[in-house]
């Protein structure tokens, strides 16, 4: 039993190791891009439109609305980043219904990579909004004494993002694997369904936390902070 799909090496050349995680990610990317291209090839601006276009519009509008509700005033600017996080994680979890498939989000490397992306994106969006000085000053708020705690907070929350997603996805796969060896009928199916639900919830949590972090970095300080949704995993 292996804990991570990184362990399954398909091709290796020096440090370049093509493992299951990367291949599955490519597969998901291909699916998303080809699907999007096919659906958006004949988009209709009229009132009558195809069902697939309708589905994509619902998804995109729901993500936009969610971003706006968290407190970002220009949700379209963050749609690509946050929407892709959600779609990637959700699709990675949804793929577990395919036999033999291993979710790339079940790999700590993937979750760390996503967390690092958020870790980098948050200050970038903050600097874009307030400038470098304005953003860095936010680490000294409310007093300069809080500077180390703010830095630790940044790092720890990034680590928490990565480990939370990895733990949940990996545990789901592990539980199903273990149960298959003990009770091979019905029960693993129920657990698999539960894992699917957990994956969706994790996709939502990851993307909404990223949104909250970005919102916190880009928000002007006089805005009351109680508008932040309190999301706990």
């Amino acid at each position: 039993m292996h804990l991570s799909p990184d362990d399954t090496i398909i091709w290796q050349y020096g440090i370049f190791r093509l493992n299951t995680t990367i291949v599955a990610t490519w597969g998901l990317m291909l699916f998303l891009i080809i699907g999007s291209t096919i659906i958006t090839r004949n988009l209709s601006t009229a009132l009558k439109r195809s069902r697939w276009q309708n589905l994509l519009e619902i998804i995109v509008m729901a993500i936009l609305k969610q971003i706006e509700e968290v407190g970002l005033s220009h949700p379209r600017k963050y749609l690509s980043f946050l929407g892709t996080i959600f779609l990637f994680i959700a699709l990675a979890s949804l793929g577990t219904i395919i036999p033999g498939y291993e979710a790339p989000t079940g790999s700590l490397s993937t979750t760390v990579a996503l967390a690092l992306c958020v870790f980098v994106a948050v200050p970038l969006f903050g600097i874009e909004e307030h400038g470098l000085g304005g953003y860095l000053k936010s680490y000294l708020k409310p007093t300069f004494i809080m500077l180390p705690f703010n830095i630790i907070s940044e790092l720890s929350r990034t680590l928490a993002l990565a480990v939370r997603l990895f733990g949940n996805m990996m545990s789901g796969a592990m539980i199903v694997g273990i149960l298959l060896s003990i009770i091979p009928f019905l029960f693993p199916l129920v657990m698999s369904l539960l894992g699917l639900l957990t994956g969706m919830v994790q996709a939502y949590i990851f993307s909404i936390l990223a949104t909250v972090y970005i919102a916190a970095a880009t928000r002007t300080r006089h805005v009351p902070s109680h508008s932040n949704p309190k999301v706990t995993p």
Partner: peptide, 21 residues
């Protein structure tokens, strides 16, 4: 558990996916 090459590759993959989507 952590393969740094995979981490970098996945980060790149993710950024490419963001751009493509």
């Amino acid at each position: 558990l952590l393969d740094w090459f995979t981490v970098v590759a996945q980060a790149l993959n993710f950024l490419i996916l963001v751009w493509l989507l």
